[in-house]
Structure formats: structure tokens, C-alpha cells
């Protein structure tokens, strides 16, 4: 079979027309659809199809030799002929071809899948209409459809099964318990930040906090063995040391930076702070407060924003 001849839309050649007439007899090829469409609106090809149909008709009318007696009955009892094919004349009439040409999907039996989807209400409106047109004429398909409908109806009678009583309470309790014991919810996380949660945590925290105290204690114990040193003398000495270090740092900074106005102002400020310890302490305290405040705000608003409202009871 040559499919391009009838599919490009040009006139049908003899092969295509014969193929079409064959198709009417049941040998359906992929190309027949376009050939049929062409035939429907081309009088020229239709005339040639008529001529060919004549030939087919002549072949069909070839002189028949009488078969032996009761041959027809013997054959018919052995096969299951569809109504039309059982008609005595095998001749092709134009009317019959036309009828075949106008055949729609409604004549074909419905597949199991199609029937299932129809029974399940899952076919598009167009497909459902086509399927129903066939069902109106086919008892066979209607029976099969009823079978699928029964299956679906049976499935839909199955009860919904409930969990044991108190299920919802148990889920809520378990969920809240988990929210409290996991690290992620805000409250638990914040508690974790303030207090160690395990014995190992306590040991670590204890060591870290007591180390400076122990070091300070050791130094103090050593100094107390030197009688010349008084507390006031020691503090004064430390203050001088710090002041010298700061002055040295300031000078270095001053030397490093080419003498810009900014560097000079910073130096003056440092000098001013050194000259007045109270101002220095206040500045340090203010700076620390600002730092801690911004860390706290970040922690509350960026780290765990969604847990803030979780345990509002309503």
C-alpha cells in the first residue's frame, strides 16, 4: 500500500481507489481516512471510484457455480456472520460504500477502558456522547457497561473505617510533646540558650565560667604573698599600664594613617576617653548593650519567626 499518494491531498490514483474499496470490505489502512475525505469533495475521483466499483461489481457478479446441496447451511452453521455480510449479493453498491464512508465511531464496540471511564463519569462530554450513541444500539456493550457500574457501586459501598477512640487526642498530645522536646520550637531553643540541657553541658559551662575566676584567684593569691603591694597601688599600676598601651596604640595608628582629619579626630577622641575613665566605661557599656540588643532582635525575628505564635491557645 502506498500511503503518500492519498495523503498529500492530490487526486487519488488507481491504487488508492482500490485500497479504499478494499477498506470498505474491512481491510482498513491508515491512509483510508484522508482518501475518504478527498473522495467526498472531488467529483472526478468519485467518477473513477464508480468505474472501479463497477469492476468490483462485475467480479462480484461473476457467474456462480452451484455448490453441492445444503452447502450454505453447513457453512452458516459453522460461522457467525454479521448481518450485512450474510446478504446474498456480494456486489458493491455505491449506496453501501456511502454508508460505509459515513460510518462514525458510534458503530465500533467500546473498549473496556472507555466503558470504565463512562461508568466512572470520567469521559469528556464529546466522548461520552459518542459512547452513548453506540450504547443505544448495542446490547453487548450495554451489558459490559452495567458490569463496570456494578463493580464501582460495590466499591463505593465500602465503609470508611475509623481509628480507635481517642485517636485525635493522642495525636495532639504527641505533637505537643514533640514540640516541647525538639530543639526547633522557639521556647525550647531559648531555654537551651540560657541553661545547659545535659550533664555534659553543665560540666562544660561550669569549666568555662570558673576558669577566669580560678585564674584571677591564683593571681590574687600570688600577689597577696608580696607584702609591698597594696590593692590601691595595684589598681593604679594596672591603670597606667592600660593607658600607656592605649597611647602607644594611638601613636601607631597616627603614624600608620597619613595624617588625615578623621584619624586625628579619632586620636583626639581616644585621648579624651583615656583622660576620663567614667566616659570610657559608659561608652563601652553603651556599645555592648547595642550589640546584645541587635543580636536579640535578629534571634527573635530572623531565626525562628514562625514559632513565636505556635502555642497561642484559642
Amino acid at each position: 500500500m502506498n500511503s503518500d499518494r492519498s495523503s498529500y491531498g492530490g487526486h487519488l490514483d488507481d491504487d488508492a481507489i482500490q485500497g479504499l474499496l478494499d477498506a470498505a470490505e474491512g481491510h482498513v489502512g491508515a491512509e483510508t481516512e484522508s482518501a475518504r475525505r478527498h473522495l467526498a469533495d472531488c467529483p472526478g475521483c468519485r467518477a473513477r471510484a464508480d468505474a472501479w466499483q463497477e469492476v468490483f461489481g462485475e467480479l462480484g457478479r461473476l457467474r456462480r457455480f452451484a455448490p453441492p446441496g445444503r452447502f450454505a447451511e453447513r457453512v452458516l452453521s459453522g460461522i457467525d456472520l454479521p448481518g450485512e455480510a450474510a446478504s446474498p449479493s456480494r456486489a458493491w453498491s455505491w449506496g453501501r460504500l456511502r454508508r460505509w464512508l459515513s460510518r462514525t465511531a458510534a458503530d465500533a464496540h467500546l473498549s473496556g477502558r472507555r466503558l470504565q471511564e463512562l461508568a466512572d463519569g470520567a469521559l469528556s462530554r464529546k466522548r461520552a456522547t459518542l459512547a452513548k450513541a453506540h450504547l443505544a444500539t448495542c446490547v453487548d456493550c450495554e451489558d459490559r457497561l452495567a458490569g463496570w457500574r456494578r463493580l464501582i457501586a460495590t466499591l463505593e459501598t465500602l465503609p470508611s473505617l475509623a481509628p480507635a477512640a481517642g485517636f485525635a487526642e493522642r495525636v495532639m498530645a504527641r505533637w505537643q510533646e514533640m514540640a516541647e522536646e525538639t530543639v526547633s520550637p522557639g521556647q525550647a531553643a531559648r531555654r537551651w540558650r540560657l541553661w545547659p540541657r545535659s550533664p555534659r553541658g553543665w560540666v562544660l559551662a561550669g569549666t568555662l565560667t570558673s576558669m577566669p575566676a580560678a585564674a584571677f584567684g591564683a593571681v590574687a593569691a600570688f600577689l597577696s604573698t608580696v607584702p609591698q603591694l597594696t590593692t590601691a597601688g595595684l589598681v593604679t599600676y594596672l591603670w597606667w599600664q592600660a593607658r600607656d598601651a592605649l597611647s602607644a596604640f594611638g601613636s601607631t595608628l597616627l603614624a600608620a594613617v597619613v595624617q588625615s582629619g578623621a584619624a586625628f579626630r579619632a586620636y583626639s577622641l581616644a585621648d579624651y576617653l583615656i583622660a576620663s575613665p567614667a566616659v570610657a566605661v559608659a561608652a563601652a557599656a553603651g556599645f555592648t548593650t547595642l550589640m546584645l540588643g541587635s543580636i536579640w532582635i535578629l534571634h527573635r525575628n530572623i531565626d525562628f519567626p514562625r514559632f513565636a505564635l505556635r502555642h497561642v491557645h484559642s
Binding site: 495532639m172 505564635l309 505556635r310 502555642h311 497561642v312 484559642s314
Partner: peptide
């Protein structure tokens, strides 16, 4: 928003 009743 944390409404327990909604979860229930």
C-alpha cells in the same frame, strides 16, 4: 497562626 482549635 498557632490556633490549637484549628489543628483539632
Amino acid at each position: 497562626q498557632g490556633r490549637e482549635g484549628a489543628y483539632r
